[in-house]
Design a protein around this nucleic acid. Structure first.
Lengths: 341, 341
DNA sequence: GGGGAGAATGTCTACGTAGTCATTTCGTGC
DNA sequence: GCACGAAATGACTACGTAGACATTCTCCCC
C-alpha cells in the first residue's frame, strides 16, 4: 500500500507529503522553536508514514558534528574494561551520543595508533582512552579531536586532553598494602600488571611507596598479564617461599590464579598466606576463599567522565577548572587474615 | 609553518596542492586502477602534508554505505558477550569496517528496540545481534538493514536475517548432562539463565531432553540472572537437598556461586556434589575446585559470522546456501566426579 | 604522420541536511 | 482598516565525496 521505496525517504519526501518546505521538516526534527504545533504534527505524521529517519551522514557532513564518541578499549574481556565500556555506552546513549569501539591489542605494538586511526577515519567528536597504555615507541600519538583519559593522561598530542583522576588520598593500592601491613604481615609481595599499562604502574608504585614509608622490606615484584593463568604461574614461585605471608595482586584474576597456586602447594589461604586483589569482579565474592579486593564504581566513572567530556564539546571555552575525581572502595573478605604466629 | 587550518583539509585542497583534479584524489584514496604511479605519489605526499583524511560522512552520504556495523550486546560485563564483542571488533577492523555498540539493558523492557534504533539512527550497514533475547512485547522488531543473529534467530522483521547456528550434534548442554549422567549420577539439576535469553532457553531445553532421553528424573530447574550471586542464592536451596549430587549451571559464574553455597553448607565439591558450568571463562581453570565447563571459540564465531555477513553485504544476490556453524568444546576439570557410593 | 585504442585525467553533478536570509502570515494597538 | 513587530515558513546554498561521462594524452602500427 505504501508503495515500495527503493531508497529511504528523505526530508524532501516528508516535506512534499506534509505540504511544507524541506526546511520546516528540518526544523521539526531539530526541535527548533519557530514551528507551529499544527505544522509539527503534520510533519511528524508524514514522517511516520514514510518511515523517515534523518540521515546522519548528511547532517554530519554539514555540521561537522557526528554525535559519536570513540572509545579505545583493550582487546580483552576482563571485567574492568568491559564494565566500563558498558557504562560508557549507557551514559552516552542517555545524552544521544553513540559509541564506536576500537581495541588496542596487546600483541600488536602499533595497536593503540591503529585503534585511534580507525576511530578518526570513521568520524568521532572525541576519543576516550579507557585504561590507557603508553606507547612504547616514544613518539606521541597525534589525535585531532579532544581526548578524555580515564585514570591517566598518556603521551598524546591532541587539541585538548581531559582526564578523570583518582581522588586525593584514594590510592587504593596503597590502602590495600597498608591494610595487609596493619594485619601484622612483615611485608607484602606484589604481582603487577603489564608495565605498559598506566594502571599497572600506578598500583605498583603505590604499593612500593607504602612499603617504603612503613619501613618494610620491599620484595621484588613480578609482572603478569592480568590473566588468572599468569597469576597462577607467578604464584607457584611465591608458594615455594616460606617467607611469603601476604600477596597483593594487581587485579582479581591474577589473585585467583595465585590462590590456585597456593592451594596446589598445600599452603592455606588465608591461614598461611593472605591474598588481596583489585577490581572486585563479580565472582570475587564467591570464589573460595572469597577475595579481599578494591572495587570502583565504573558506572559512575563513565557517567562523570562522559559528562565532563560532552560539556566541554558543547562549550569548549568553558573548561571546568578541576577534573572530576574517582573513588575506590576496599572490600575485606576471607582471603586475608592476620599472619599465624 | 603549515599554517593553521581552521577546518580539516578536503580532497579539493589536496588536489590543488598536488596539481590534479579532486576526482583524481578520490581515485587515489579508493585505490582505483587508472592512476599513474607518479600521480599517486604526488597526491599521497600532498595528503600527508595537509593531514588529509577522507570525510566518512560525505562518502556515506553519497554511496549509502557506512562501512559500519552495529552490534547489539547486553548491558553486562560477562565474559561471553564481552569476549565476543572484542572478537567482532577485531574481525571487523581487519576488513576495514568499524563497530558501533548499543546495549540492551535487562531492566528496560524496551531495551532491545531502543538499542537497535540508536544504531539505525547513526547509520549502520548491518546489525549483529549478539546473544539475542526475545522481545517479550510480542510485536516483532522492525529493522531496515540486514541482520546477523549469533546463535539464534529471534523475532525480527528485516530485509535479510542471517544466523550462525550451533553445529549438528553440538548441543553442548546435552553433552555436559550426558557426561554427568555417565559418571553415575542419578540425575542432574539445572540452574538456568533468564528465560528471555535464547541461549538460556536452549541450554535448559537440551538439558531437559537429555534427561528424558536417558530415562532420568527431571528435577525442577530454576533461573538465575547469570551472576555468581544468583547462583549462590539458588545454590543454597540445592545445598540443603541431600539428593542433589550433580548440578549443571547455565554459565560459569552461576556455577561458581553454586560452589560457594555448597562450600558454605559443608558439602564437598566434587566429593558430594559435582558442578559443571558453561563458557569456560578464564578463571574457571583457577577457582577451587577448578571448573568443568564448556568453552566456545568466540574469536572464530566472530570471524566466521562477520565474514558471512560482509560477504552478503558485498553481494546480496549470492547468499551462501548454508549458514556457518559453531562448535563447543567440553573441558573436564576438578568440580565433577563420580558420585560417592 | 595519420589514425586508433586504451590509459590517464578532468568536468559536472547529486547525495540529504541545516545555515542564512528573505518572505509571508498573524496578532495587536490605535 | 492600517501600520508594525513578531511569529512562522520558505528559497537558496554549501558541506566533501564519488559516479557518469567527456576529454586529453600516449604509444604503436601501417
Amino acid at each position: 500500500m505504501t508503495g515500495d521505496r527503493k531508497r529511504p525517504a528523505g526530508s524532501v519526501d516528508v516535506a512534499r507529503l506534509a505540504g511544507v518546505s524541506q526546511k520546516t521538516v528540518s526544523r521539526v526534527f531539530n526541535n527548533e522553536p519557530r514551528v507551529s504545533g499544527e505544522t509539527r504534527e503534520r510533519v511528524l505524521a508524514a514522517a511516520r508514514e514514510l518511515g523517515y529517519r534523518p540521515n546522519s551522514a548528511a547532517r554530519a557532513l554539514l555540521t561537522g558534528r557526528h554525535y559519536r564518541i570513540g572509545v579505545v578499549s583493550l582487546g580483552t574481556a576482563h571485567f574492568g574494561p568491559s564494565s566500563l565500556l558498558v557504562a560508557l555506552e549507557r551514559a552516552a546513549r542517555r545524552i544521544s551520543y553513540s559509541l564506536s569501539v576500537a581495541n588496542s591489542f596487546e600483541e600488536d605494538a602499533t595497536g593503540l595508533k591503529a585503534a585511534v586511526d580507525n576511530l578518526l577515519v570513521q568520524g568521532v567528536d572525541a576519543i576516550i582512552l579507557s585504561e590507557p597504555v603508553d606507547d612504547e615507541g616514544g613518539e606521541p600519538l597525534v589525535i585531532d579531536v579532544p581526548v578524555l583519559a580515564l585514570g591517566a593522561a598518556p603521551v598524546v598530542q591532541a587539541p585538548t586532553v581531559l582526564s578523570v583522576r583518582a581522588a586525593e588520598g584514594g590510592d587504593a593500592a596503597a590502602e590495600v598494602t597498608r591494610y595487609l601491613l596493619g594485619l601484622g604481615h612483615r611485608t607484602v609481595h606484589h604481582i603487577a600488571g603489564p608495565p605498559r599499562w598506566w594502571a599497572a604502574r600506578e598500583r605498583r608504585h603505590n604499593w612500593h611507596d607504602t612499603l617504603v614509608a612503613a619501613g618494610a622490606e620491599v620484595p621484588e615484584s613480578r609482572s603478569g598479564d592480568w590473566t588468572a593463568r599468569s597469576g597462577y604461574e607467578l604464584g607457584r614461585d611465591l608458594a615455594r617461599d616460606p617467607d611469603v605471608t601476604a600477596i597483593f595482586a594487581a587485579n582479581d584474576e591474577m589473585a585467583i590464579g595465585v590462590i590456585h597456586a597456593l592451594h596446589e602447594a598445600g599452603r592455606d589461604v588465608p591461614g598461611e598466606v593472605s591474598v588481596a586483589g583489585f577490581d572486585d569482579i563479580p565472582v570475587a565474592a564467591h570464589v573460595w576463599p572469597s577475595l579481599t579486593t578494591v572495587g570502583s564504581d565504573n558506572a559512575e566513572l563513565a557517567e562523570v567522565g562522559l559528562t565532563y567530556l560532552t560539556d566541554f564539546l558543547n562549550d569548549p571555552e568553558h573548561v571546568p577548572p578541576a577534573p572530576p575525581q574517582h573513588v575506590h572502595q576496599m572490600v575485606i573478605r576471607n582471603s586475608t587474615a592476620r599472619p599465624s604466629a
